[in-house]
Write a protein that binds this DNA or RNA. Structure first.
Length: 583
RNA sequence: GAUCGCGUAGCUCAAAUGGAUAGAGCAACUGCCUUCUAAGCAGUAGGUUACAGGUUCGAAUCCUGUCGUGAUCACCA
């Protein structure tokens, strides 16, 4: 039997449990990869096993330990302490692991093959994207890549909220105060141009309330916006014309921002295309007694049993609200596409909203509700508190991207050919890694005055590590006179732990990828990539890796280095970060 | 007020879903560039995991309570 075909310790343990105790372990095997103060490279925690097997812990440990050391003859050792079965890898086992990693199948995971629709970004067509959208977009993009890499078929979709009272707000402000201006005339980015009028609307609105000390609903400018909304829904030609024009300005702006971020969507949906379908569903639901009508003609659903207030579905003037459209969208998607799952990436402030949406869909008889998932992420706070886009307390996505690229320009030491792309890649690496390394369920506090770091645990650190690796490889082939591919000598033994540490951590890659995919959490992967980089830099700074006088040893190192580079590239690409061969 | 989150080093974040002595980065302080990229490496210091109970072989993680903090509760989106 060639050692190459040996299976991992984890797999053999499963076989062992069956052989010894006739257990088809359908419970989880509690393996730990973390090395603590006790020597050992992988640990099996025995407590939970002993509950299932009902034998003394020590006996079980010794039986498993003996079984495995026999199987991996001469490759591993074991010892037991306090209910922990510790395995120690010997040199041969590292070679075996390394050979497995050199096989391209090591990177390819195929454990799921679903059709998954992922909705993210979902901007309003009345103002530019801000720092919160950036988090949303980066999480969405990265999860799409991760899910795709484990075998799924992904469709990235953005829903643009292009209709409703908020759109009419910027429209009415423009009509009254800016009708002679266009983004071309003022040389503004279209989304920022329109956003200015949205902000202006609220300034005027606040003034009116203050001045006339009236109820918010009575503010003249809001009344005008409402009339405009009604006109829009009635298909008034002039209104539609302005609406189309202003939306186009905004979309052009979005397009530039997405381009800067290297983000693309497979499909874009517009609320305006679907809201009528949503309205029909509400009206049908009313006929079937799922919803009820108030005296003023507005339509509602009773959610007392679910612990929520009654929810409005259609206004008394027959114009639709946000959820009208969302009900229609969900139903439409399941009718139109063959999908196994639908994932919404939307901030946690809408947790209840999604619970309500799912409840309504269930009441409407949609059996596929269980296939929908709301991936909720925490908000981005500024150090000064919560962002308020109406009051202008926001950091726009464009500003942030611009800032990052500028910082890269300042730090660039060497002249390079592709200056602009270089700075963009550096800036974006820092930006994307900064957001993705944090668990989506945790909030991010952003300090505009501190800006995003370029040293320490950052995307730049990983870029730097990666470019070291690639330049080492080039140098190796030049200096060691080896022209064919890497050769794995059978007698690899290093005089240090650095190489072994790298092998151990890379061994975890499939596990990490799987975990990231299952939890829809890119931060697991992001933190892991950093650990890998760190292990490599330990080696790099402490050992001379390329030496023309000892080409075999250098070659052995190169195997590890090569894999490390591949892992970094693979992993970072899954975060949506491009890697550079030179820095 | 009600409901749902969150609380880990001065700051920003980890911690294998209940495992062994809670780890990194920033900031501070020491060292290391004539030698493969110092955007780096080696080290020092920094913790009663908000607090109090409970569950068990074992808790930052699960349960209860208290305090702090955030989100949601609109004919807004």
């Amino acid at each position: 039997m060639s050692k190459y075909y040996l299976k991992s310790i984890e797999k053999i343990t499963k076989k062992c449990l069956y052989d010894l105790y006739k257990i088809n372990y359908n419970f989880k095997l509690n393996f730990q990869y973390k090395k603590k103060s006790y020597p050992g490279d992988i640990t099996l925690v025995l407590f939970s096993l002993s509950k299932n097997i009902k034998k003394p812990i020590k006996e079980i440990g010794e039986n498993i330990g003996n079984y495995l050391t026999n199987y991996f003859n001469g490759l591993i050792k074991y010892y037991i302490i306090n209910g922990f079965l510790n395995f120690i890898f010997l040199d041969g086992y590292y070679i075996f692991l390394l050979k497995n990693m050199l096989n391209p199948n090591f990177y390819k995971l195929n454990f799921s093959s679903k059709n998954i629709l992922i909705e993210f970004s979902s901007p309003n067509a009345n103002k530019p994207l801000h720092i919160g959208h950036i988090r949303n977009i980066l999480i969405g993009d990265s999860i799409s890549r991760i899910l795709s890499s484990v075998g799924n078929n992904i469709m990235k979709i953005q829903m643009i909220n292009d209709r409703g009272i908020h759109i009419c707000k910027s429209m009415i402000a423009w009509k009254e105060f800016g009708i002679r201006n266009t983004p071309i005339k003022t040389k503004e980015k279209g989304d920022h141009f329109v956003g200015r009028f949205y902000k202006m609307f609220h300034l005027i609105y606040d003034k009116e309330i203050k001045k006339k000390s009236i109820n918010g609903k009575e503010a003249p400018i809001l009344k005008k916006a409402r009339i405009l909304l009604k006109k829009w829904e009635d298909g008034d030609k002039e209104t539609i014309k302005i609406w189309k024009m202003m939306n186009k300005w905004v979309y052009n702006g979005f397009k530039k921002t997405y381009n800067e971020l290297d983000i693309s969507f497979d499909k874009t949906e517009y609320e305006s295309d679907i809201y009528n379908f949503g309205k029909k569903i509400i009206e049908n639901g009313l006929k079937n007694g799922i919803f009820f009508k108030k005296k003023d003609g507005s339509i509602w659903i009773d959610l007392k049993n679910e612990g929520f207030n009654n929810k409005l579905l259609l206004r008394s003037d027959k114009t639709s609200v946000y959820i009208t459209q969302d009900i229609g969208t969900a139903i439409n998607r399941f009718n139109k596409y063959k999908i196994d799952n639908l994932i919404y990436i939307v901030g946690k402030e809408q947790n209840d909203y999604f619970k309500i949406l799912f409840t309504i869909l269930k009441r409407l008889g949609c059996i596929w509700v269980s296939k929908i998932y709301h991936l909720s992420y925490e908000m981005v706070f500024l150090s000064s508190g919560k962002m308020k886009s109406r009051e202008g307390q926001v950091i726009s996505a464009d500003d942030l991207i611009y800032q990052m690229i500028n910082m890269a320009k300042k730090k660039l030491k060497v002249q390079c050919k592709d200056y602009n792309n270089y700075c963009k890649t550096i800036g974006l690496s820092a930006l994307k890694y900064y957001f993705l390394k944090v668990d989506p369920s945790k909030k991010i506090v952003f300090y505009p005055e501190k800006s995003i770091d370029f040293k320490g645990k950052t995307g730049i650190y990983i870029q730097y590590t990666y470019s070291r690796i690639r330049s080492l490889e080039t140098k190796f082939f030049e200096e060691c006179n080896i022209t064919d591919n890497y050769n794995l000598s059978h007698s690899i033994i290093w005089d240090n732990i650095y190489g072994k540490n790298i092998i151990k951590i890379i061994k975890k890659y499939p596990f990490i990828l799987k975990k990231s995919a299952k939890n829809l959490n890119p931060s697991i992967l992001a933190n892991y990539i950093y650990e890998v980089s760190k292990k490599f830099n330990n080696l790099y700074q402490n050992k001379k890796l390329i030496d023309p006088f000892t080409p075999i040893k250098s070659n052995n190192y190169m195997n590890i280095i090569h894999i490390t580079g591949n892992i970094l590239k693979n992993g970072m690409n899954l975060l949506g970060i491009k890697m550079m061969n030179k820095m």
